[in-house]
Design a binder for these strands. Structure first.
Lengths: 137, 137
DNA sequence: TAGACTATATGTGCAATGCATATAGTGATG
DNA sequence: CATCACTATATGCATTGCACATATAGTCTA
């Protein structure tokens, strides 16, 4: 029942260290929220709902609380089970700022890579050979 | 002799799943190379030399070989110890193409996030609060 | 002969994540 | 009431990508 290991990058993991965490911080920066409800909002960042792993979401939120980035309390009222509602802290806001800077570096690196790929290592790269001008893609 | 490394991020891990691997595939797509020499070339993608972890590099290359993405052989001649020279395979090229596609999705997500941060959740997002218009950076 | 340098390799451990599963309250329906 | 579907939160297990530390060894120079 396993996927063929030759199927590189089937569809699943593709981690991106703490990216989910940063998304959550940003959402909570705007307004308080609870786990299940945040899932929908994550689509703003290009997440398909089926991409998201509920376990990871909750575990991430709990971890963020232990780190002091958010606080939580049980919300009464409404229908359905009680919700644990999260609120960002000052420390969480700093962390958000910090990670945005990191993500900008990350973006630059990805840009460099994609650019190099699309030009097959042309500008500023090592001695350009002119070979490999075949353009797949 | 290298391009200016644009890196200013703090110091630590900040993984990016398999990003190094994709960089290596792209470098080897251009021309064959060996471990130690690839380190310098990685600065083209925004890696500072001191960012790079030599262990990770070699382990990654070996892993890529067991996966059939590259082949290697010992190169004689020249001075210094022998070098294990790597060459990309057809499978490696497919893998590269595939990961580029993933990185483009990744780029889009990072763009969404940074954009939302800079605008504090304005376009298409939930109710905009208008607060926090301070622009660090 | 002794470093300094180049080059490759591995043991250990951690953190981020996916997958599977558990627990439990609410509302609707028969 | 009993049952079921749905919402909501939580946790055990395994995988994996990476860092850190360390090991091995050839070459060159003093």
């Amino acid at each position: 029942m396993k996927l063929e290991p030759t199927v590189f990058c089937s569809n699943k993991p593709h981690h991106m260290e703490r990216f989910l965490e940063v998304c959550l911080l940003l959402l909570l920066y705007d307004e308080i929220g609870y786990g299940y409800g945040l899932i929908e909002q994550l689509s703003y960042f290009g997440f398909a709902v089926e991409d998201l792993n509920v376990s990871t979401l909750y575990r991430t939120l709990r971890k963020m609380e232990t780190e002091g980035l958010v606080t939580s309390q049980w919300a009464e009222g409404g229908q359905g089970p009680k919700r644990r509602v999260y609120e960002i802290t000052v420390k969480g806001q700093s962390e958000l700022d910090h990670w945005i800077r990191i993500l900008k570096v990350r973006r630059a690196r990805i840009e460099s890579l994609i650019s190099a790929y699309d030009h097959k290592l042309q500008p500023g790269g090592p001695d350009v050979k002119g070979e490999n001008t075949d353009g797949d893609f």
